[in-house]
Amino acid sequence: MAAEREDRPSHAGRVRLDVPRAPRRSLLPEYDPDAFGRLSEKIARFLGTGRFIVWMTVIVIVWIAWNVLLPAGLRFDEYPFIFLTLALSLQASYAAPLILLAQNRQDDRDRVNLEQDRKQNERSIADTEYLSREVASLRMGLGEVATRDWIRSELQDLLRELQQGDGQHPSDRSG
């Protein structure tokens, strides 16, 4: 009977919950967000260096010198340097989101580190409070323990009493 039910096609409106869906095809390309984030951090790190500034300055100077000093036939971007402006704008339009992505990833790491530090501080405070209570209990316990100096002073007092006494042995005295 159960085999007959499985052989029958399911109704068009019914969805079986015990059968996984077929994976959907997406028109968007798939990528690894973590790998992309690491790449963006590397680019952002490079954009923040003096090396990048020097290379960018050299490229702009060469570009302008090429298009001003060479003969007209070899120039590819005349005076208002529209192509240079377009290239710099394109570079800036990609740099800004990459830098923001790198900052967001750093913020996430900082948030996790802050949470771990907070938990570690809580554990340290709890440990310190525990140790403080233990030291206090030890001090209270030591208050009831006979110390070497106290025993020495008691023995010296007994010795003085014996020396000042009437010469009787302490066991002979019965009060």
Rank of each mutant, 00 (worst) to 15 (best):
L74N: 06
R45M: 01
I99Y: 01
W55N: 12
I53H: 08
V58E: 11
I59Y: 13
G73W: 10
Y79W: 13
L101D: 07
L84I: 09
N67R: 07
V68D: 08
L74C: 05
G50N: 04
F46P: 13
Y31R: 09
Q103M: 12
I64H: 00
I43S: 02
M56I: 05
K119Q: 15
E41W: 00
A102H: 03
L84T: 09
A96I: 00
R51P: 02
V60N: 14
I53S: 08
R38E: 11
E115F: 02
R75E: 07
L86A: 15
F81V: 12
Q103A: 14
V58R: 12
E41C: 02
D117I: 06
L114C: 00
I61S: 12
R111G: 04
D32Q: 03
Q106K: 13
L69W: 03
R111A: 11
T85G: 11
G48Q: 14
Q106T: 02
D32K: 04
D32I: 11
D32N: 13
N121T: 10
T85N: 15
R118D: 14
P71V: 03
D117A: 12
A96F: 14
Q91D: 09
D34L: 14
I43M: 05
L101G: 00
L90Q: 07
F52Q: 12
S93L: 05
I99T: 07
E41I: 01
D108K: 09
V62A: 14
L84K: 03
G37M: 01
R38T: 01
D77P: 06
L114E: 11
L84S: 05
K119N: 14
V58M: 14
L101F: 05
P80V: 09
A72I: 07
L69E: 06
L74V: 08
Q91C: 11
L74H: 06
I53M: 12
P71N: 03
G73K: 07
T49A: 08
R118F: 01
R111L: 12
E41M: 02
T57R: 10
G50K: 10
Y31P: 01
F46G: 10
T85S: 14
D108I: 00
L84G: 10
R111P: 01
R51D: 13
I61P: 06
V68N: 14
A72D: 09
W55T: 12
D110E: 09
L101W: 02
Q116D: 13
P97M: 04
R109H: 08
F81N: 03
P80R: 02
A95H: 02
